[in-house]
Amino acid sequence: MLTSLFSIALGAVLVENFIFNKFLGICPFLGVSKKVETASGMGMAVTFTMTIASAITWLIQHFILDRFGLGFMQTVVFILVIASLVQFIEMALQKMMPALYSSLGIYLPLITTNCAVLGVALLNIQNDYNFIQSIVYGFTAAIGFTLAIVLFASVRERLEYSDIPKSFEGLPIALVSASLMAIAFMGFSGLKVI
């Protein structure tokens, strides 16, 4: 049991990193990665949402969709679930944890339509994970996302101060460095727990 969880975690963080391997969540990856501070804020918000979304969507899939033979409705239902979940979390945080809200608040609406969150929910079902495995996968995939975005943000902070050819300034050089980081992460492929 523990080995399988560790294997899932390792896979989600490094080997099959959501951004560099599955290309999910590229939009916030490029959008909120200008500063390490905002990047880690976004990472935390995504971690929070993805973990909870994994749990809820697993329950919905197994107790509602499977029961009525509506597996094909997955995508639509999950979008609905995630969107309302994020809204709910935002409201709950604002009331109960204002400190956390003020640090995550601005990122939460951005996550509503984040494909990484939907991706993790669908992958949980595709991979036939059980409840615990789903939560672990959701959490660690988000950790992988955070790792990627924070690393990338620190690269971009340095890019700000480098002498870049005019035509490459801004997003082009960011995309080039993102692809180089993806190549670096390819080094993890083949890493496996037997």
Binding site: L65, L70, M73, L80
Partner: peptide, 10 residues
């Protein structure tokens, strides 16, 4: 069923 489930969930 599909429409119903989605409507109820919504």
């Amino acid at each position: 069923y599909a429409v119903g489930t989605l409507a109820i969930l919504g």
